[in-house]
Structure formats: structure tokens, C-alpha cells
Design a protein around this nucleic acid. Structure first.
Length: 691
DNA sequence: CTAGGGTTAG
């Protein structure tokens, strides 16, 4: 190991890199710079050379680390006669900060080559480095070879395993360790919380309180508060709240923040706000959580008010905040608001590789603006899987199945690996487009080509494809052969297909399964009744209706809304409360006449009630989507596209009627129902009557 | 040296 005793000469820089090159046959070093590039790269390099010539390597390494030039700092190691523990420690510290696994391994190799005994402290740092980089095998090796271990060694291993989701391994160590402190407990508890195992987290918390002398601290209680929030267990949350007050752990802002969020997630949003208001130093995390709770609770106004308060507070919203607000915009199809947020983000700057960026793609997709979604997507240097999937789904729901599938093919070409959600998007694109066989091909490729395991959703999608096409026998084969119980999504697809093709027998089986799985969902009753009505089986319709009454199930009222001049106008079925109702009614009558002349025949089968023909027709013309569409037409200049949103699936008659309306009024009419977008133009719909 | 609260795709 001659390099360790190398004498530094005046021609140091050149020599330095030559040595580095020759050493690279051992552990791989990064490519050395040429001498010229070295001098060009940084003005402090002269100083570093000087320090090295004087043998002051520690200082040189410090400077290099500060400049984040780890590779060179590690290379310098080869010139030091006996590196001190503090030099190794500095280097590892920086490797840790930069998550530089390769450089860390080099430093580790150096300690071995130079015969340096790392000691407890340094070994723990190596474990931490390997664990943080997800290289648990290396971490375990260091851990196993250690002559003595302290609590920190164990705790670092445990948190390393929990970080990569190996809760079982972590728990094994946790159970094996000779003694535990609150780090051990908290690492294990928070590991459970982060991997959606809140029950286990709370169980461990109980154990901690009864079986061990370790005291929980602010870290522990924040974690268990998150666990109660995940379980929506207000009882548990309140209990912990009491514990926090008793033990004086309430002096920490993070604990307060977690407490507020727990109340919000458990449905006590006012209590959450009370705690939020009491806090003195609210950081952006606290704000984000509170804003998010309002949106989640459907309290858009409060959420927005708080968001603008945040913008004026001097605290900079971050990607989490934006993602939350944008997600709310997506859910409410509030594209204008989303655009404003987008503009604000652009003004203050945002990371194009972040949750916020993918939330933008999601928002535009959900609002039916695939052009903008695509624009944002194209602006991302390296789109993540969520953005890919959002856009694919966006195309699928917007009647652009070819674009959806094309995008999926580019995804494959880009080297990004699709996951199970991506395939749900791809399969639903095929279903929306009626590409049955192509969809089945993709379905088979999930396992065969991509090596993924089928989820219940994939089976539901495959069945959806077949049922929509009326290929019930194949659908039933899949149901009978799938390795898990069919879930409600699958049966809902089946009954949907039965509705299109009038398959009463299978509809009955699906409905029975659905009554078991989600007896309170009114959609099942309504669809079943409609299927019976179509078949003219009126006594069965009455039975279903009776069953609904007995079980106290109320049909979800159809609700449509339209944004005109930044104002939302909401319409219910048969809603006469709008201030401009007369105008709407008048135009609707006029339209009806024109529509009939064009050949429109009201389809009255899809009405739940068994009533006289004439009255049925009357019911239909006042469905909320028609009211909203007509209101859109009478309140905008001719030629303006109309964009309406509905909370339920659009009914067959409305779908048909709006086709005629688009032709007569010469408008582009976009209806986003609970399932997808319908883009009506000149008497045709983008869904090709397939939804 | 090891540990905490907020956020996305069907």
C-alpha cells in the first residue's frame, strides 16, 4: 500500500490525479479530471493544492465537502498517511447528507485497507449510511461484524428496515434487542404508521406504556396521533390528547400540528381549527394539513380562505400545499381556480419534479383540459409514474383513447415501469373506447410481459371490457377463475353491462352480490330497477322500490353544476329555484320541439318510477344535466363551449338529448359525469355511446 | 450518531 506513504511533491495536482487513476483498479473511483479542467473548475483549487502540499488534508477535505465535491474529497484520502477518525467521520457525514452510497463504500473500503478500526461511533455511521441508501444488506453486514453494539446500532438498523418497508425484519430486531429506549419504540411505531399499519403502531404504543420503563416523548406521540388519524379513531385520539396534556408534551409545535390534524381527519374539523388557531408558530406543514382537511371535508370556501391567508402570511406554500389545493380543484372540476394556482406557482417558482407538478397534470386531466395537462407534462424534465398515469387516464376519460394508448407506449419506451394503477388506466381507456380485444391483450400482458401480479381492479377492468361488449360468458369465466373474491367494482361493471344489453338474469346475480357487499349504495337498486323497467317487469321494479324503502335507502339526487363568469350554478333534478328558471324553461320547451323535428324520441325506460308515459317524459326533461346545459346556452354568447359537471352517471335519455342539443344550438357541450367526459359535437358524442 | 406532523394516479 505504497500510496499511503506517498510523498507529496511540488507538482502535486498532476500527481494527485495520476495516483487516483492508478488506484482505480481497486474499488472503482470516479473518472479523474484533467489538470486543466481541475484549475478551471474552481477558484479555491489553488488553496486546496496548497493545503495538501502542506499536509493539511483535513482542511482540504473540509473545503471539498463544503463544495459538495465528495468524489475528490474521497480521492484525497489515498494521500493521507494515517487518516484520523475525524476525517473519516467528516467524509461519512457528507456521504450521508448527499446519500452518496458509492463514495461511502469507498471510504469504508479505505478503513479496511489502511487497517483502521472504525469503532462503535463510525460503525453506526456506516450502518446509517447504508440504511439510508436502502442498502440493508451492507448495513446488516456491518452490524453483524461489530464487536460491540450499542442502542444506537440497533435503533439505526430498525429504522433502516422500516424505511424500506421491511417491517418484519425490523420487528425481529426490535424483539431481539437486549434493551430498548424510546428511540427504539418510536422508530418501530413510526415505521408502522408510515406503512399503513396504524393498528400495529397503537398496539405497540400500548405495550410501551405498560411493559417498559421508556417514556414516550414528542416523537412518539406525534406518530401515534397520526396512527389514530389514519384509523379515524376519535376515541383513541382524545385519549392521547389527554395523555399529552398530563405529561406536558404539549409544548411542541409538531405535536400540536399532529393533534390538529388528528381531529380534522377524525371528522372534528372545528376542533382541529380551534387548535390551529391557538398555535403561535404555524409552519407550512400545519397550514397545509388544515387547508387539506377543509377540502377533504368538502368545505371549499374555508379551504380557499385559509389558502389565501397563507399566501399573505409570508410563509411560502410548498409542493405539498399546492398538491393539496390542486387536488381539491381536480375533485371539484374547478379549472379556473386551478389555473390561478398554477399561475401563482409559476410566479413564486416550483420544482418541476414534484408532487405539485404531477398534481397539475392531474388537475388539468380531471378538468377535461388534456391539452394543458399535456403541456405541463411536456414541461417536466423527467415525468414520474403518477404524471404518466394521470395523463393516460385523462385521455381515457376524455374520449381520446388513441392518445391514451399512444402515451402508454411512449411510457414503455421511456423505460419507466408501469405499475398496477397504470394498467387500470390503460384498461379503462380500452373500455371507454370499446377496444375489447386490445384491452384483453393488455390485460394478459400485465402478468406475462410485465411480471406484475393481478389485483382485483384488473379483473374488474377485464370484466368491464367484456360486459360492456355483451360478452357475458367470457366475463363469467374470468369471475369463476379469478383467485380472489370479486369485489364491488367488478360487480358494478357486470351490472353496468347488463344494463346496456338487457341481461336480467346476470343483473340479478350481480345485484345480489352488491347488496351483500354494499347494501347502502342506492346505485345498485336504481340500476336494477331500470333494468327491470326496460324489460317491462314492473312488478319487479316495485319490489326493488319496496326493498329500498324498507332499508331506508334514498336515491342520491342528481346534481349538475356549471361555472359561468367564475360563479358556480348548481342544479338538482326538476330544480325550479334558479333565478333565471323561466328563461331556462322557455328555451327547453322550444328545444324540445326542434329536437322532435330532428327525430329525437324520449327514452323513458330509465326512470325508476312506474308512472304514466307523459309524466315520465316530464321527469326526464328536468334532469339536472339538461337544466345546466340549457342554462349554459342561454347565458353565454353563441358558439361558446359549454362545460357541465354531474355527480352521477349521465342517463341514456339525457345523453341522447344532449347530442341533439349540440347539433341544434351548434355548440360544443362537454359533460363530465362521475365516470368520464362526454364531448358532444354536431350530434355526436366522443364516448361513441360507450360508457 | 438513531426517531415525529402535511401531499399526488383508477
Amino acid at each position: 500500500m505504497t500510496f499511503l506513504h506517498l510523498k507529496i511533491s511540488k507538482s502535486f495536482p498532476l500527481l494527485f490525479f495520476n495516483r487516483a487513476r492508478s488506484f482505480s483498479s481497486e474499488p472503482p473511483l470516479n473518472k479523474p479530471l484533467t489538470e486543466k479542467a481541475f484549475f478551471k473548475s474552481n477558484t479555491k483549487d489553488g488553496l486546496i493544492s496548497r493545503l495538501c502540499i502542506d499536509g493539511r488534508f483535513k482542511e482540504a477535505i473540509d473545503i471539498l465537502c463544503e463544495q459538495q465535491r465528495l468524489t475528490k474529497a474521497v480521492q484525497l484520502l489515498t494521500h493521507i498517511n494515517r487518516p484520523s477518525a475525524s476525517i473519516y467521520s467528516t467524509l461519512i457525514q457528507h456521504c450521508l447528507q448527499q446519500r452518496a452510497l458509492d463514495q461511502g463504500k469507498l471510504v469504508h473500503a479505505h478503513t479496511r485497507l489502511s487497517g483502521f478500526e472504525p469503532g462503535l461511533f463510525l460503525c453506526n455511521r456506516f450502518i446509517d449510511l447504508y440504511a439510508k441508501c436502502g442498502s440493508l444488506l451492507d448495513a446488516q453486514e456491518v452490524f453483524d461484524e461489530m464487536a460491540e453494539r450499542d442502542l444506537c446500532s440497533w435503533n439505526t438498523m430498525i429504522s433502516g428496515y422500516t424505511k424500506v418497508g421491511k417491517l418484519g425484519e425490523a420487528r425481529k430486531l426490535f424483539d431481539e434487542m437486549p434493551e430498548r429506549d424510546n428511540f427504539s419504540w418510536t422508530a418501530m411505531i413510526s415505521g408502522y404508521v408510515h406503512h399503513e399499519m396504524p393498528k400495529e403502531a397503537l398496539e405497540l404504543f400500548r405495550m410501551m406504556q405498560t411493559h417498559d420503563n421508556s417514556k414516550s416523548n414528542k416523537f412518539t406521540v406525534s406518530s401515534v396521533l397520526a396512527a389514530s388519524a389514519a384509523l379515524q379513531s376519535l376515541r383513541m385520539g382524545k385519549e392521547i390528547h389527554g395523555y399529552i396534556m398530563r405529561t406536558g408534551l404539549d409544548s411542541d409545535e409538531v405535536v400540536w400540528s399532529a393533534l390538529s390534524d388528528m381531529y380534522g381527519k377524525c371528522g372534528s374539523i372545528d376542533e382541529a381549527r380551534r387548535i390551529f388557531d391557538k398555535m403561535v408558530n404555524r409552519d407550512v406543514v400545519t397550514w397545509t394539513a388544515m387547508i387539506g382537511r377543509y377540502f377533504e371535508d368538502g368545505k371549499k370556501e374555508e379551504g380557499l380562505a385559509l389558502f389565501s391567508e397563507l399566501m399573505n402570511s409570508g410563509i411560502r406554500p410548498n409542493e405539498f400545499t399546492f398538491a393539496g389545493v390542486l387536488n381539491a380543484c381536480a375533485g371539484h372540476a374547478a379549472e379556473n381556480l386551478g389555473k390561478q394556482v398554477h399561475a401563482y406557482m409559476t410566479r413564486i417558482g416550483f420544482d418541476p419534479v414534484s408532487f405539485a407538478a404531477s398534481a397539475l397534470v392531474h388537475m388539468y386531466s380531471k378538468c377535461g383540459n388534456t391539452a394543458n395537462a399535456n403541456k405541463v407534462f411536456k414541461g417536466m424534465p423527467c415525468p414520474d409514474l403518477v404524471s404518466w398515469t394521470s395523463l393516460i387516464v385523462g385521455y381515457a376519460q376524455n374520449g381520446q383513447p388513441d392518445e391514451a394508448l399512444q402515451l402508454f407506449e411512449s411510457l414503455l419506451k421511456s423505460g419507466t415501469r408501469p405499475d398496477h394503477v397504470t394498467f387500470v388506466g390503460v384498461l379503462s381507456a380500452c373500455a371507454h373506447a370499446g377496444f375489447v380485444d386490445k384491452g384483453l391483450e393488455y390485460f394478459h400482458s400485465i402478468k406475462e410481459k410485465h411480471g406484475l401480479t393481478y389485483t382485483a381492479d384488473h379483473y374488474a377492468c377485464a370484466v368491464d371490457l367484456l360486459a360492456r361488449a355483451g360478452r357475458f360468458e367470457e366475463a363469467e369465466n374470468i369471475i369463476n377463475e379469478m383467485p380472489m373474491q370479486p369485489d364491488k367494482f367488478l360487480w358494478a361493471s357486470v351490472i353496468g353491462g347488463c344494463r346496456i344489453h338487457g341481461n336480467v338474469k346476470l343483473a340479478k346475480r350481480a345485484a345480489e352480490a352488491l347488496f351483500e357487499l354494499e347494501p347502502e349504495n342506492p346505485a345498485t337498486y336504481v340500476t336494477l330497477a331500470n333494468i327491470y323497467a326496460t324489460a317491462g317487469m314492473w312488478s319487479e321494479v316495485t319490489n326493488v322500490r319496496k326493498k329500498m324503502d324498507e332499508r331506508g335507502i334514498i336515491k342520491t339526487p342528481g346534481l349538475s353544476w356549471i361555472e359561468i363568469k367564475r360563479e358556480m350554478h348548481v342544479f338538482l333534478v326538476g330544480d325550479k329555484s334558479h333565478p333565471r328558471y323561466n328563461e331556462i324553461d322557455h328555451y327547453l320547451c322550444e328545444l324540445s320541439k326542434r329536437m322532435r323535428e330532428e327525430g329525437y324520441v324520449p327514452d323513458t325506460n330509465f326512470v325508476l318510477h312506474d308512472v304514466e308515459e307523459e309524466q315520465k317524459e316530464q321527469n326526464l326533461s328536468y334532469h339536472s344535466e339538461k337544466l345546466a346545459v340549457v342554462f349554459g346556452i342561454v347565458s353565454t354568447p353563441s358558439g361558446t363551449p359549454i362545460k357541465v359537471f354531474k355527480n352521477l352517471r349521465t342517463c341514456v335519455d339525457c345523453h341522447n338529448a344532449i347530442k341533439y342539443i349540440s347539433k341544434i344550438s351548434n355548440r360544443r357541450i362537454i359533460v363530465r359525469d362521475s365516470n368520464r367526459f362526454h364531448c358532444f359535437e354536431d350530434g355526436k358524442c366522443s364516448c361513441l355511446d360507450y360508457w
